[in-house]
Computed example of a mutant assay.
Amino acid sequence: MGVVALADVAAGPSMGFLPLMAVGPAFAPLVGGWRRTAYVGGTALLLCLVLGWYDDMTTLRRGSVVVVSVVGVTLAGLVAVAMRRRREAELDSVRSIAEAAQRVLLKPVPKLAGRLRAAVSYTSAVAEARIGGDLYEVVAAPQGVRVIVGDVQGKGLEAVETAALVLGAFREAALDEADLVAVGSRLARSVDRQLDGEKFVTAILAEVSAHQVTFLNFGHPAPMLVRGGGTVDLPEPESYALPLGLSAHGTVDPQPYHAAFLPGDQLLLYTDGIIEARDGGGRFYPLTERAHLLKEDDPESALDTLRQDLLQHVCGPLQDDAAMLLLRYR
Protein backbone atom coordinates (compact mmCIF):
# COMPACT_ATOMS: atom_id res chain seq x y z
CA MET A 1 0.00 0.00 0.00
CA GLY A 2 2.92 2.32 0.68
CA VAL A 3 4.37 1.63 -2.76
CA VAL A 4 0.97 2.30 -4.37
CA ALA A 5 0.66 5.59 -2.45
CA LEU A 6 4.14 6.75 -3.48
CA ALA A 7 3.53 5.77 -7.10
CA ASP A 8 0.21 7.61 -7.13
CA VAL A 9 1.77 10.78 -5.72
CA ALA A 10 4.68 10.60 -8.17
CA ALA A 11 2.58 9.87 -11.27
CA GLY A 12 -0.37 12.13 -10.50
CA PRO A 13 -4.09 11.46 -11.09
CA SER A 14 -3.65 10.64 -14.77
CA MET A 15 -2.16 7.17 -14.14
CA GLY A 16 -4.85 5.87 -11.79
CA PHE A 17 -2.82 3.77 -9.34
CA LEU A 18 -5.37 4.30 -6.57
CA PRO A 19 -7.51 1.14 -7.25
CA LEU A 20 -4.47 -1.00 -6.44
CA MET A 21 -4.88 0.07 -2.79
CA ALA A 22 -7.42 -2.77 -2.39
CA VAL A 23 -4.58 -5.31 -2.70
CA GLY A 24 -3.62 -4.70 0.95
CA PRO A 25 -6.98 -5.70 2.48
CA ALA A 26 -7.16 -8.62 0.03
CA PHE A 27 -3.97 -10.20 1.38
CA ALA A 28 -4.43 -9.28 5.04
CA PRO A 29 -6.68 -12.31 5.91
CA LEU A 30 -3.93 -14.70 4.80
CA VAL A 31 -1.48 -13.58 7.48
CA GLY A 32 -3.52 -12.20 10.37
CA GLY A 33 -6.73 -12.17 12.37
CA TRP A 34 -9.75 -9.92 12.17
CA ARG A 35 -8.04 -7.06 14.04
CA ARG A 36 -5.15 -6.96 11.62
CA THR A 37 -7.48 -7.26 8.63
CA ALA A 38 -9.63 -4.40 9.93
CA TYR A 39 -6.53 -2.30 10.64
CA VAL A 40 -5.14 -2.85 7.13
CA GLY A 41 -8.56 -2.12 5.61
CA GLY A 42 -8.91 1.07 7.65
CA THR A 43 -5.41 2.20 6.66
CA ALA A 44 -6.18 1.53 2.99
CA LEU A 45 -9.43 3.50 3.26
CA LEU A 46 -7.66 6.43 4.92
CA LEU A 47 -4.97 6.44 2.22
CA CYS A 48 -7.67 6.38 -0.46
CA LEU A 49 -9.42 9.38 1.05
CA VAL A 50 -6.19 11.35 1.42
CA LEU A 51 -4.93 10.48 -2.06
CA GLY A 52 -8.39 11.09 -3.53
CA TRP A 53 -8.37 14.58 -2.05
CA TYR A 54 -4.79 15.07 -3.27
CA ASP A 55 -5.74 13.94 -6.80
CA ASP A 56 -8.94 16.02 -6.66
CA MET A 57 -11.09 12.90 -7.12
CA THR A 58 -13.52 13.52 -4.27
CA THR A 59 -16.31 14.53 -6.65
CA LEU A 60 -15.56 11.97 -9.33
CA ARG A 61 -17.32 8.65 -9.66
CA ARG A 62 -13.98 6.89 -9.92
CA GLY A 63 -12.97 7.99 -6.44
CA SER A 64 -16.22 6.72 -4.97
CA VAL A 65 -15.76 3.37 -6.70
CA VAL A 66 -12.26 3.00 -5.24
CA VAL A 67 -13.52 3.71 -1.70
CA VAL A 68 -16.41 1.27 -2.06
CA SER A 69 -14.00 -1.37 -3.44
CA VAL A 70 -11.66 -1.06 -0.46
CA VAL A 71 -14.57 -1.27 2.00
CA GLY A 72 -16.00 -4.30 0.18
CA VAL A 73 -12.68 -6.14 0.05
CA THR A 74 -12.12 -5.42 3.76
CA LEU A 75 -15.54 -6.83 4.69
CA ALA A 76 -14.90 -9.90 2.53
CA GLY A 77 -11.55 -10.32 4.29
CA LEU A 78 -13.20 -10.24 7.70
CA VAL A 79 -15.62 -12.97 6.58
CA ALA A 80 -12.67 -14.98 5.25
CA VAL A 81 -10.86 -14.65 8.58
CA ALA A 82 -13.89 -15.96 10.45
CA MET A 83 -14.16 -18.95 8.09
CA ARG A 84 -10.43 -19.65 8.31
CA ARG A 85 -10.48 -19.57 12.10
CA ARG A 86 -13.41 -22.00 12.18
CA ARG A 87 -11.66 -24.41 9.83
CA GLU A 88 -8.45 -24.14 11.83
CA ALA A 89 -10.37 -25.04 14.98
CA GLU A 90 -11.90 -28.05 13.21
CA LEU A 91 -8.47 -29.10 11.96
CA ASP A 92 -6.97 -28.81 15.45
CA SER A 93 -9.76 -30.98 16.82
CA VAL A 94 -9.29 -33.64 14.15
CA ARG A 95 -5.52 -33.54 14.62
CA SER A 96 -5.80 -34.03 18.38
CA ILE A 97 -8.12 -37.01 17.86
CA ALA A 98 -5.73 -38.50 15.28
CA GLU A 99 -2.75 -38.08 17.60
CA ALA A 100 -4.64 -39.77 20.43
CA ALA A 101 -5.53 -42.67 18.12
CA GLN A 102 -1.91 -42.94 17.00
CA ARG A 103 -0.68 -43.05 20.61
CA VAL A 104 -3.12 -45.86 21.35
CA LEU A 105 -2.04 -47.82 18.28
CA LEU A 106 1.72 -47.45 18.72
CA LYS A 107 2.15 -47.13 22.44
CA PRO A 108 5.62 -46.23 23.74
CA VAL A 109 7.61 -49.40 24.25
CA PRO A 110 8.75 -50.12 27.82
CA LYS A 111 12.29 -48.88 28.37
CA LEU A 112 12.93 -51.93 30.53
CA ALA A 113 11.50 -55.32 29.54
CA GLY A 114 12.76 -58.21 31.59
CA ARG A 115 16.55 -58.05 31.45
CA LEU A 116 16.49 -55.90 28.31
CA ARG A 117 16.52 -52.21 27.54
CA ALA A 118 14.44 -51.15 24.52
CA ALA A 119 14.30 -48.04 22.35
CA VAL A 120 12.30 -47.17 19.26
CA SER A 121 12.67 -44.66 16.44
CA TYR A 122 9.83 -44.05 13.98
CA THR A 123 9.75 -41.64 11.05
CA SER A 124 6.57 -41.48 8.98
CA ALA A 125 6.77 -40.68 5.27
CA VAL A 126 3.43 -38.84 5.55
CA ALA A 127 3.85 -35.19 6.54
CA GLU A 128 2.67 -34.34 10.08
CA ALA A 129 1.85 -37.98 10.85
CA ARG A 130 3.38 -39.88 13.74
CA ILE A 131 2.66 -43.30 12.35
CA GLY A 132 2.05 -44.94 9.02
CA GLY A 133 2.34 -48.48 7.75
CA ASP A 134 5.21 -49.66 9.96
CA LEU A 135 4.57 -51.30 13.33
CA TYR A 136 6.45 -52.50 16.39
CA GLU A 137 5.74 -53.86 19.86
CA VAL A 138 7.61 -55.26 22.86
CA VAL A 139 5.89 -57.72 25.22
CA ALA A 140 7.48 -59.18 28.35
CA ALA A 141 6.01 -62.70 28.40
CA PRO A 142 6.81 -65.48 30.90
CA GLN A 143 8.82 -67.30 28.20
CA GLY A 144 10.95 -64.24 27.45
CA VAL A 145 10.77 -60.83 25.84
CA ARG A 146 8.86 -61.07 22.55
CA VAL A 147 8.97 -58.35 19.93
CA ILE A 148 7.60 -57.69 16.47
CA VAL A 149 8.60 -55.25 13.75
CA GLY A 150 6.51 -55.16 10.59
CA ASP A 151 5.81 -53.24 7.42
CA VAL A 152 2.32 -53.01 5.91
CA GLN A 153 1.93 -52.83 2.17
CA GLY A 154 0.85 -49.34 1.11
CA LYS A 155 0.46 -46.08 3.02
CA GLY A 156 -2.22 -43.89 4.50
CA LEU A 157 -5.23 -44.79 6.60
CA GLU A 158 -5.63 -48.28 5.13
CA ALA A 159 -2.07 -49.13 6.17
CA VAL A 160 -2.71 -47.79 9.67
CA GLU A 161 -5.85 -49.94 9.93
CA THR A 162 -3.90 -53.05 8.93
CA ALA A 163 -1.12 -52.19 11.39
CA ALA A 164 -3.71 -51.97 14.17
CA LEU A 165 -5.00 -55.42 13.24
CA VAL A 166 -1.53 -57.01 13.34
CA LEU A 167 -0.56 -55.34 16.61
CA GLY A 168 -3.77 -56.38 18.32
CA ALA A 169 -3.29 -60.00 17.29
CA PHE A 170 0.36 -60.02 18.35
CA ARG A 171 -0.27 -58.46 21.77
CA GLU A 172 -2.79 -61.16 22.55
CA ALA A 173 -0.83 -64.09 21.13
CA ALA A 174 2.50 -63.07 22.69
CA LEU A 175 1.08 -63.50 26.19
CA ASP A 176 -0.97 -66.64 25.52
CA GLU A 177 1.15 -68.94 23.37
CA ALA A 178 3.87 -71.22 24.69
CA ASP A 179 6.48 -70.65 21.97
CA LEU A 180 7.27 -68.24 19.17
CA VAL A 181 6.11 -70.61 16.44
CA ALA A 182 2.65 -70.74 18.00
CA VAL A 183 2.63 -66.94 18.20
CA GLY A 184 3.48 -66.72 14.51
CA SER A 185 0.83 -69.28 13.52
CA ARG A 186 -1.87 -67.51 15.48
CA LEU A 187 -0.83 -64.16 14.07
CA ALA A 188 -0.89 -65.53 10.52
CA ARG A 189 -4.38 -67.00 10.97
CA SER A 190 -5.75 -63.75 12.36
CA VAL A 191 -4.27 -61.68 9.53
CA ASP A 192 -5.45 -64.12 6.85
CA ARG A 193 -9.02 -63.94 8.12
CA GLN A 194 -9.22 -60.16 8.08
CA LEU A 195 -7.04 -58.93 5.21
CA ASP A 196 -8.72 -58.50 1.83
CA GLY A 197 -7.36 -58.77 -1.70
CA GLU A 198 -3.60 -58.67 -2.20
CA LYS A 199 -2.73 -56.84 1.01
CA PHE A 200 0.17 -58.25 2.99
CA VAL A 201 2.49 -57.46 5.89
CA THR A 202 6.17 -58.34 6.15
CA ALA A 203 7.15 -58.97 9.75
CA ILE A 204 9.87 -60.40 11.93
CA LEU A 205 9.18 -61.84 15.37
CA ALA A 206 11.89 -62.31 17.97
CA GLU A 207 12.04 -63.88 21.42
CA VAL A 208 14.99 -63.24 23.74
CA SER A 209 15.61 -65.74 26.53
CA ALA A 210 18.69 -67.20 28.24
CA HIS A 211 21.29 -65.36 26.14
CA GLN A 212 19.69 -66.54 22.92
CA VAL A 213 17.34 -64.90 20.44
CA THR A 214 14.87 -66.84 18.32
CA PHE A 215 13.56 -65.34 15.09
CA LEU A 216 10.53 -66.01 12.92
CA ASN A 217 10.69 -64.18 9.60
CA PHE A 218 7.71 -63.44 7.34
CA GLY A 219 9.52 -61.97 4.32
CA HIS A 220 11.13 -59.16 6.34
CA PRO A 221 14.68 -57.74 6.14
CA ALA A 222 17.18 -59.64 8.26
CA PRO A 223 17.86 -58.24 11.75
CA MET A 224 21.23 -56.75 12.61
CA LEU A 225 23.21 -58.09 15.56
CA VAL A 226 26.05 -55.83 16.68
CA ARG A 227 28.44 -57.82 18.84
CA GLY A 228 30.25 -56.41 21.81
CA GLY A 229 33.50 -56.47 19.84
CA GLY A 230 32.02 -54.40 17.01
CA THR A 231 31.37 -57.15 14.48
CA VAL A 232 28.02 -57.20 12.69
CA ASP A 233 25.87 -60.25 11.90
CA LEU A 234 22.71 -60.46 9.80
CA PRO A 235 21.01 -63.71 10.89
CA GLU A 236 18.88 -65.11 8.07
CA PRO A 237 16.64 -68.18 7.82
CA GLU A 238 17.46 -71.03 5.47
CA SER A 239 14.44 -70.02 3.38
CA TYR A 240 12.17 -67.01 3.63
CA ALA A 241 8.44 -67.43 4.08
CA LEU A 242 5.98 -65.16 2.33
CA PRO A 243 4.58 -62.17 4.23
CA LEU A 244 1.51 -62.34 6.44
CA GLY A 245 -1.72 -62.37 4.48
CA LEU A 246 -0.46 -64.50 1.59
CA SER A 247 -0.97 -67.98 3.03
CA ALA A 248 -3.65 -68.63 0.40
CA HIS A 249 -0.81 -69.21 -2.04
CA GLY A 250 0.00 -72.47 -0.24
CA THR A 251 3.41 -71.52 1.13
CA VAL A 252 5.17 -73.29 3.99
CA ASP A 253 5.22 -71.75 7.45
CA PRO A 254 8.36 -69.88 8.49
CA GLN A 255 10.88 -71.94 10.43
CA PRO A 256 12.45 -70.57 13.62
CA TYR A 257 16.17 -69.93 13.69
CA HIS A 258 18.46 -68.90 16.52
CA ALA A 259 21.43 -66.68 17.30
CA ALA A 260 23.47 -65.98 20.41
CA PHE A 261 22.56 -62.72 22.15
CA LEU A 262 24.94 -61.96 25.00
CA PRO A 263 25.45 -59.01 27.36
CA GLY A 264 27.20 -56.30 25.39
CA ASP A 265 25.45 -57.26 22.13
CA GLN A 266 22.82 -55.12 20.44
CA LEU A 267 19.87 -56.29 18.34
CA LEU A 268 18.41 -53.89 15.78
CA LEU A 269 15.15 -54.73 14.04
CA TYR A 270 14.10 -52.35 11.26
CA THR A 271 11.88 -51.92 8.22
CA ASP A 272 12.88 -51.60 4.59
CA GLY A 273 12.43 -47.84 4.76
CA ILE A 274 15.89 -47.81 6.37
CA ILE A 275 17.92 -49.94 3.97
CA GLU A 276 16.07 -48.75 0.85
CA ALA A 277 16.57 -45.04 1.54
CA ARG A 278 18.59 -43.56 -1.33
CA ASP A 279 20.86 -40.56 -1.58
CA GLY A 280 21.02 -38.17 -4.53
CA GLY A 281 23.12 -40.66 -6.50
CA GLY A 282 20.68 -43.52 -5.97
CA ARG A 283 22.84 -45.36 -3.42
CA PHE A 284 21.06 -47.28 -0.66
CA TYR A 285 21.71 -46.46 2.98
CA PRO A 286 24.64 -48.66 4.18
CA LEU A 287 23.17 -49.73 7.52
CA THR A 288 25.85 -52.29 8.42
CA GLU A 289 28.57 -49.69 7.82
CA ARG A 290 26.81 -47.35 10.26
CA ALA A 291 26.61 -49.87 13.10
CA HIS A 292 29.32 -47.95 14.99
CA LEU A 293 26.81 -45.10 15.48
CA LEU A 294 25.01 -47.27 18.06
CA LYS A 295 27.90 -47.05 20.54
CA GLU A 296 26.28 -44.45 22.81
CA ASP A 297 25.33 -45.62 26.30
CA ASP A 298 21.72 -44.47 26.05
CA PRO A 299 19.87 -46.61 23.46
CA GLU A 300 17.45 -43.80 22.59
CA SER A 301 20.33 -41.42 21.90
CA ALA A 302 22.04 -44.11 19.82
CA LEU A 303 18.92 -44.55 17.66
CA ASP A 304 18.53 -40.79 17.31
CA THR A 305 22.12 -40.54 16.05
CA LEU A 306 21.45 -43.28 13.51
CA ARG A 307 18.22 -41.60 12.41
CA GLN A 308 19.96 -38.25 11.89
CA ASP A 309 22.60 -39.98 9.79
CA LEU A 310 19.84 -41.57 7.71
CA LEU A 311 18.21 -38.19 7.06
CA GLN A 312 21.55 -36.71 6.08
CA HIS A 313 22.04 -39.59 3.65
CA VAL A 314 18.78 -38.92 1.80
CA CYS A 315 19.17 -35.11 2.04
CA GLY A 316 15.43 -34.60 2.41
CA PRO A 317 12.23 -36.28 3.57
CA LEU A 318 12.00 -40.07 3.52
CA GLN A 319 9.97 -41.68 0.75
CA ASP A 320 8.86 -44.58 2.96
CA ASP A 321 8.09 -45.09 6.64
CA ALA A 322 11.17 -46.04 8.66
CA ALA A 323 11.04 -47.84 12.01
CA MET A 324 13.89 -49.13 14.18
CA LEU A 325 13.73 -51.12 17.40
CA LEU A 326 16.91 -51.54 19.45
CA LEU A 327 17.36 -54.11 22.22
CA ARG A 328 20.22 -54.33 24.71
CA TYR A 329 20.85 -56.10 27.98
CA ARG A 330 20.67 -53.84 31.00
Rank of each mutant, 00 (worst) to 15 (best):
V3N: 01
V4P: 03
A7H: 01
A7E: 04
A7V: 12
A11I: 06
G12S: 08
V23T: 03
V23D: 03
G24Y: 00
L30V: 10
V31L: 13
G33P: 07
G33T: 06
A38E: 05
Y39W: 14
V40L: 08
T43F: 11
L46P: 02
W53L: 12
Y54Q: 12
L60T: 13
R61P: 08
G63K: 11
V66F: 06
L78R: 05
E88Q: 14
E88L: 15
A89K: 12
D92V: 02
S93M: 13
S93K: 10
I97V: 14
V104K: 01
L105Y: 08
P108L: 11
V120A: 13
T123C: 08
A125H: 09
A125E: 06
G132M: 11
E137A: 14
E137G: 04
A141D: 11
Q143V: 10
R146C: 09
V147C: 14
I148R: 02
D151Q: 10
V152D: 05
Q153N: 02
Q153A: 09
Q153H: 08
E158L: 14
A164S: 15
L165M: 14
V166E: 03
G168P: 07
A169R: 11
R171N: 07
R171G: 07
G184K: 07
S185F: 09
R186P: 00
R189Y: 08
V191R: 00
G197T: 10
V201W: 03
T202H: 06
I204H: 05
V213H: 07
T214C: 09
F215V: 05
N217A: 05
N217T: 10
F218E: 06
H220E: 09
T231N: 11
V232R: 03
D233T: 00
L234A: 11
P237W: 07
S239Q: 11
Y240K: 03
L242V: 12
G250T: 05
Q255F: 01
Q255D: 07
Q255P: 00
H258V: 12
A259S: 11
A260W: 03
A260F: 01
G264N: 04
G264L: 04
L268G: 00
I274P: 00
G281R: 11
L287G: 01
L287T: 13
R290Y: 02
A291Y: 00
H292W: 07
H292K: 04
L294M: 01
E296Q: 08
D297T: 08
D298V: 00
P299F: 02
A302G: 03
D304G: 02
T305L: 15
L306E: 00
R307W: 02
R307M: 15
Q308G: 14
D309K: 07
H313W: 15
C315F: 12
L318I: 12
Q319A: 15
A322C: 14
L326G: 01
L327H: 03
R328E: 04
Y329R: 02
R330H: 05
